[in-house]
Design a binder for these strands. Structure first.
Lengths: 232, 232
DNA sequence: TCACTTCATTGACTAAAGTTAAGAAATTAT
DNA sequence: ATAATTTCTTAACTTTAGTCAATGAAGTGA
């Protein structure tokens, strides 16, 4: 039940599969048509995601087609640093992105983003500097948005305004639930919940980062794990 | 600096001022024009809030005019219970609403909403039952939304789609920041932060509810306060 | 105003998390 | 493959939070 094993194999696979390698460290650029020739699965990812929230009409498909840009970043890339203005947001197609702050010389992980999640720094599109760092934990493939592109897209395709609003509201509801869950749990319950809801993540990222993500020190998480194993 | 005094006076005032009494426990109903005659300040509240995010055009003003409904609830009213379907969301004009869960017979406060905040249960507009209770801590005046009204409004006034999306994104960014702050703080820091960012709230709600809101037991918050006072 | 209830504080004790330091294991780089 | 580095675990000890129980203060209702 509880998977407390090594993550070496999984991370190796994640960083070496064909799908990932075919894009690594290359800016692919404006894209949908190009992508079709390169890898159909990226198209499918985006449409699969959107089809959860709306009917994919011919018109919508065209809107997506015209306005989807794909970028790829190598493992370890810092997408945004503290103090910087954020001009990009991402839809994560492949890989893992971590946001964190540095406090008293110590990294504190705020969030891990994985496939099909939207990564929007809280200062995105604003003139204020970022409080957070965003870093690629693995080789990453994303669909990129920026304020100018958004503006253009929303003007050309007003139906996307409504879709975005709906998706924003859904994401917000999920965030609220996560926050509530966090507030009403202790560290052990948070870890157990994470094993249940995001088991693959536990294998993909180092444990000391999970610790701060759960609001405890690495030593405490180590003890929590020990406790869990011994208690059954 | 640290306001650790009694909250009786403040609560008394909040529940007795003219503004509040003029609406108390009355469903005012469809509204903007009527409201103008009853109390201009409600109109001003809504327009003031929206003017932060957009230019108030004649058209927008009309859209608001047609689609704003006001309701008033007495202190202690439960707006939504666990297990219920949520069919209303609110924009809080006056008063305080608390969301909480009951776990092992114990109430755990998730959020306190006050003036100018949007109250959207995470199951609002969905077929799933609520995980939370929403309760009025004081007499409350809200602008009410429901899915049918929203649909109608957005169809009639597509420009509101965009405004709503923008506001949703801003609220989401704020929520993310709050969550990050919570994760990276210990209980004492959370309390100090609350005194700084929402000092009036500390006076308006009982301390044991603040405790669970900060993720600790009432006894611990009591000790934290003691520590803070003695440490300066 | 008095009785009743809820809420806040305190104390004694237990459990869990933070701190510091050391060493083992895993991962990465050469 | 080996060395260097990072990550994880363990231990001893300190600090803080949880638990249970008692008491006093504040708030509520008759």
């Amino acid at each position: 039940m509880l998977k407390l094993t090594k993550r070496f194999k999984l991370r190796y696979e994640l960083n070496n599969q064909d799908f990932c390698n075919s894009f690594a460290k290359i800016l692919i650029g404006k894209c949908y048509n190009t992508l079709l020739k390169i890898d159909l699965s990226v198209k499918n990812e985006i449409l699969k995601y959107l089809s959860k929230y709306t009917t994919i009409t011919r018109e919508l498909e065209n809107a997506i087609k015209e306005n989807t840009f794909i970028k790829s970043f190598g493992k370890g890339t810092t997408l945004l640093s503290e103090g910087e203005i954020s001009t990009e947001c991402y839809f994560l197609l492949k890989g893992c992105i971590r946001s964190y702050i540095i406090e008293n010389g110590e990294e504190k992980t705020i969030e891990f983003y994985t496939e099909e999640q939207v990564v929007t720094p809280s200062n995105y599109g604003k003139a204020t500097p970022s409080n957070y760092y965003f870093e690629c934990m693995e080789n990453v493939i994303v669909s990129v948005g920026n304020p100018e592109l958004e503006k253009e897209t929303f003007q050309k395709h007003p139906q996307l305004d409504s879709l975005s609003r709906v998706i924003a509201e859904i994401i917000m509801a999920k965030n609220q639930d996560s926050f509530a869950k966090f507030k009403t749990s202790n560290p052990e319950e948070r870890y157990l919940n994470m094993l249940k809801t995001r088991p693959e993540l536990v294998q993909r990222v180092p444990q000391h980062q999970i610790a701060s993500y759960l609001g405890v020190k690495p030593e405490s998480l180590s003890r929590i794990r020990k406790r869990i194993i011994s208690n059954k």
